[in-house]
Write a protein that binds this DNA or RNA. Sequence first.
DNA 1: ATATATTTTTAGGCAAATCTAAAAATAAAT
DNA 2: ATTTATTTTTAGATTTGCCTAAAAATATAT
Lengths: 217, 217
Amino acid sequence: MTYSEENYLKAIYHLSLFQKKGVNTNAIAKMIDSKASSVTDMIKKLAEKNLVEYQKYQGVSLTAEGLLEAKMIVRKHRLWEVFLVEKLDFSWDEVHDVAEELEHINSEKLINKLDAFLGFPTEDPHGDPIPNAKGEIKKMDKKLLSELKLNQKSICVGVKDSSSNFLKYLDKQQIALGSTIEIIEKESFDASLIVLVNGNEMNISNKIASNLYVKTV
Amino acid sequence: MTYSEENYLKAIYHLSLFQKKGVNTNAIAKMIDSKASSVTDMIKKLAEKNLVEYQKYQGVSLTAEGLLEAKMIVRKHRLWEVFLVEKLDFSWDEVHDVAEELEHINSEKLINKLDAFLGFPTEDPHGDPIPNAKGEIKKMDKKLLSELKLNQKSICVGVKDSSSNFLKYLDKQQIALGSTIEIIEKESFDASLIVLVNGNEMNISNKIASNLYVKTV
DNA sequence: ATATATTTTTAGGCAAATCTAAAAATAAAT
DNA sequence: ATTTATTTTTAGATTTGCCTAAAAATATAT
């Protein structure tokens, strides 16, 4: 598979997590940062190879084979992210672009050895699940902080938005994966929250709370 | 720089270590496994970018800029090889192809962090020198085993041929980097040697001895 | 239900990297 | 020094992945 084919599969995979029907040509174009016509071309090629199911004008979906391929790319991406953070001291907002390149390195032995070296992690530095060698994904029951009940103790387990901007904000506020979080007051006017993060009281906007995943404890 | 451009630079670099004049079009074609006409095309492109010096029919050589680029690719290749062997338990005959892909990953931060993680190694698993971040290469005074004097104690510091075949042969004979080697007899008829490797007597053909680097002690 | 807007596809082209085959330059050999 | 052989370059095609612009299909709105 080419670099480009892999990127398309990955994009379709990510989009299909939110869209149960076929994934739109335009949505793919936006994610890949290309044009709808290019997407149509590539989709035809992927359909030829039996990696996607494609009906003209009806969007695409991954075949079983395509899904597995996509998961393997995601697996590689996230394992490399763990490597960068745990072993090479990258911060969680720096890993994405490099992992975007590393995910295309093609060696099963490499990725499985890396997996073992890292201790078979199940989540990446942003709390996203890492598919295992068979493509199985352990899903965690997490919820958005904005959906958490008052006075319910929880711990931070992931982010929805993993943009560098947001991650740096969290660093500044000393919010990290594993931080304990509890809502002690909800402001109905702007839906902002007063929370305890590791015991420290702070104010958090709704936008932040809508991008932080927590697990109740 | 594209993947392909990097491969050409690397090929020219390796060939120019043996050939002090301009490197031949045909030699490059053979190394890259392509055709002379393709090489001519690419060379023109690299000359445009000031990475090589090129005169029609006279071969190519690297400019200062091209040389540094080439060394950085070699640096990446060899650092990844160390990583694969030291951290992921690859054997020395398995690393080349994967490193061939990894060497194109483009992140200075990554490679310098990796370098530090590995403890700033100066040689790769085959005994080849690793350029440092400035492109400096610490050269070791090594010689071929075939050039070693009788009864001169030495240690194995590298291989000239790093084909999987040869490396597996060395594994089988329990010859590795760091093994002590001493010639105790030279057979003039076929130039084969009787040697002590870590104290064990064994017979070694001239071809083997001409592909093993040693350092006298 | 028809007109309007949006999305998707087709048609035709472009740039990069490669190739084959022929021509030009250089090297080797008698 | 010519001829012969080899190497290198040019010319013209091909493939991949992308593009723009126009046409076709689908969705939306009055």
